[in-house]
Every structure is written in C-alpha cells, then in structure tokens.
Write a protein that binds this DNA or RNA. Sequence first.
DNA 1: CGCTGTATTGACCTCCTTCAAATGCGGTGG
DNA 2: CCACCGCATTTGAAGGAGGTCAATACAGCG
Lengths: 238, 238
Amino acid sequence: MFSPLISKLSHGADLTGVDHQRLAKLARTRLVGAHRNLIERGDRPQDVHLVLSGFACRYKVLRNGKRQIVALLVPGDFCDLHVAVLGAMDHSIATLSPCTVADLPRDTILDLTERHPRIAHALWWTTLVDEAILREWLVNMGQREADQQIAHLFCELLVRLQVAGVADANGYPFPLTQEDLAETLGLTSVHVNRTLQAMREAGLIVLQKRQLDIPDVERLKAFCDFDPDYLHLVKRRE
Amino acid sequence: MFSPLISKLSHGADLTGVDHQRLAKLARTRLVGAHRNLIERGDRPQDVHLVLSGFACRYKVLRNGKRQIVALLVPGDFCDLHVAVLGAMDHSIATLSPCTVADLPRDTILDLTERHPRIAHALWWTTLVDEAILREWLVNMGQREADQQIAHLFCELLVRLQVAGVADANGYPFPLTQEDLAETLGLTSVHVNRTLQAMREAGLIVLQKRQLDIPDVERLKAFCDFDPDYLHLVKRRE
DNA sequence: CGCTGTATTGACCTCCTTCAAATGCGGTGG
DNA sequence: CCACCGCATTTGAAGGAGGTCAATACAGCG
C-alpha cells in the first residue's frame, strides 16, 4: 500500500525495515476521482496528504484564468508536508487522474519525526528534492525549446516513477491530456500537439492510449540533455 | 551586521531579542567582488553561506552554454542551508554585484537549531518561502508576457528588500545588467531592453544608474497582478 | 583619452499563439 | 450493437511575441 513512498524514501535515506513498519501502520487511504481538488489555495490542512497512485498536480491560476501547473505529484509524493510552518497554502492541488490518497494526521507525522531521526531525515530529503525539481523546471521553461522541454519532462517522470516502483524500464502510464501538458510547460495545447507529432515521427516516443513508451531511453536523454543529478538519488542498498 | 537576516526572520517567526543575540554572535564575514562564484555545482560546502549585502544568484548552465538564473539572493538569504541533507550542490551560486557574505560553520547552525526551536522554525520558514518563490517564478515564466514578467520580478524584489530592511518605500538599488535580467526571466537581453524602454515610456518604472524607482507602486502591482501572499509574510510585532 | 562592458537600434526570422473548425474516440443509453 | 454525446486530438491559416545577428552608441574607469 505504501510501497511507492517507501520505495522512494529508500533512495534518499537509509531506512531500516523497522522504519518501514512505522510508516505502513499509518494507513488510512481513499480513492479520489480525476479532476478533483485535493487542497485549495488558502486552506490550512490539518492532515498531511500523500499520493499513493495516479497523478496529481500543484497549480496556480491567474486572474485572467490561465493556469500554470507548478509540480506533478506521482505515487510517493506528499502534497502538503509542511504547510504548518507557512500557514495557508499559496497554491492548489488537484488530481489529474483517479488517485488513491492517504490522509495522515499531522500529529502522527510530528510524533514520528521527533522520535525517529531517520524518518525525519528522509522527509527532509523529499522536500529538498521537490525544490530541486522546481529549479530544473525553471531551466526547462527558460532555456529549452518545446520538443526538448517535453522530452526532459518525460525523462524526469521515467526516473521518478521508477524510483516509486511504478514504471518499467522504458515506459509508464501517462494520464495527462495535451492540455495538462501544455499547462505544465507554459505552452499551448495546439503547440504541444504538433510537437508531440514531430517527436513521434522522429521515433523518440510512442504515446497512445494514455501510455508513454520510450523506444530508446538513452537517445531521448541525449536529445534533451537530461542529467538526473538534481533528483539526488542515492544508490540503493539491497 | 546581521540585520537583514534578523529583519527578514522577524517576518516569518516570533524571534525574541535573545534569539537575535545568538545569531549575531556568529559573525565572520567577508567581502566578495562582483561575478565571483560562491559555490559551484558538485560542491559539498562545509560552511553555511549567507548574503548580507549585494545581489547573488543561483544558476545552472546547459551544455549549449545558455545560463538560467533560478533564484536571486538578496541580503538575509541563505545560499546552502541544507545541502548536508542532499549531498552535492546541483547548481552554482555567484555574486551579481559586490557582496558581503557570512560563513557560518555548519556545526554552529546544527547546534543552534537543536537547542532553540524558534530559530529552527524560522530557518524552516525561509526554505519554504524560497520554494514558494520558485513556484511563482514558474508561473511568471509560463504565463506572463515579458513586460508583466519584469514588473512582477520588480514587485517581488521590492517586498523582499523591504523585508530585509534595505529598500525604501518605492525603490531600491538594482545592480543587475539587462543580460542578468534576461537570464533570470528566460528572455534575451535585446528583448529585455526593448521591454524596459516601453515600461519607462509608460511611466511604470524609472531605471537608471543601477537604481530602480517605482513612481506608483500600486499601479505596477496592478499591472502585473502581483499578490504577495506567496512570500508568507507575517504581520510583524513591533 | 582609450578600453571594456553595457545599452541601444535595425532588419529579419521563427517559434509559438490564436482562432476556429474538423476529426476521432471512449463511454453510455437505447 | 449502434447512435450519440462529450471530451481530446488534430489540422489550417494568419499573426505576434520574442529571438538572432550584427552594428552602433554610450558610460564608467584607469
């Protein structure tokens, strides 16, 4: 049930089997349909939310109605680990596909981190990686052209989903619409569409029926100059 | 000496006078010229670095030589508060103007936070605000046009510099070149130049001799739809 | 006064957007 | 099983924001 989180954390810290147990004991999960708000701007959530399956996103909407997705949340990602420190949410979170979500009482988390430094350290690590991803997205939007931008996002998701244990070696389920993709990359859906077509023709990707396959992962990585160092993955001890 | 940091922290947490003392005691500062690297990608800094005056930036360079600035560091901002958790730096940090920088031994910081929860909380707060700023920059690059983008950055800096106590009500020293500005906004310096001219003609800004003045702050904020909630400032107790 | 880095300008180009219509497709109800 | 609906994808034509290249003007500084 909590395996995506545990799998992910094991790439960022040395969690022992005992620690795993502690996390798994917190289970209280629910199913959420696609396109539902999990948290809205201005909220002060009491529980900590965790995505266990499906895709969700952080987003902000401008006065003119435009929406910018500022993060994709995949299995193992926290929605609001630390709002308590900030007070109110400055952005909203919504599902992009059906998701299973865990609600963890904030007190439980606080208690857990206080008593188990390794867990605290692992959670620390996740938020710093989230920040590093934001920086890389900024580079992506600022300096790369649409095709490389899309390719880079696909490469990042491949790694992140593999780390969570929900992607195979060269592909994964990809429920986002072209519109969603456009909103995360700062493009229009029309241009995303045309760019995807070009990438398909170039044999870089196979994207159909909400499934992305990458025939030649190394080639795609080279195409967009992908370097996963910003994900700060640590060699996993078997 | 440490007033920018202390001034800033007081907007994010309830620090008492005693806490102030503790921070101030750590002083070991130095002057750094403009365009010097403070930290490079791959480094594992031992000390924690803090900007006390001047402008610095986080940046990443692509293989093709393009540079993207992913954060501006102003007085009171930390460079690398938490690399210890991540290991190596995934980006570099350089000065944009002459800066005074403080080097704080990591152990001192660890010790301080462990023994003084309020300080720990305040430092927590700063890193979460940094993350919120990244999200807003993503919105800026993805959804706003050049003129609003520039305006938004200017508004953000006005608030941040005021919070640090180094800006007056409607302006501040602005040492960045148009090239620097271009690299932070994902534009070219040519286009930044033309856009700045238009903004000057519109009376939105006065930018000359490395000094930015904003004749009508409310107007500029309205122009770019600026909402400072993402900076998570707390009403300061006098 | 000359040097060097920054700002400015012009001409041209292209990536991406806009608007609008058409096509395709999964799901549902008859 | 088929017709139909709603949503997502695809396509076309035209326009605009921003990029590229390269020359010129300007300003601070030793």
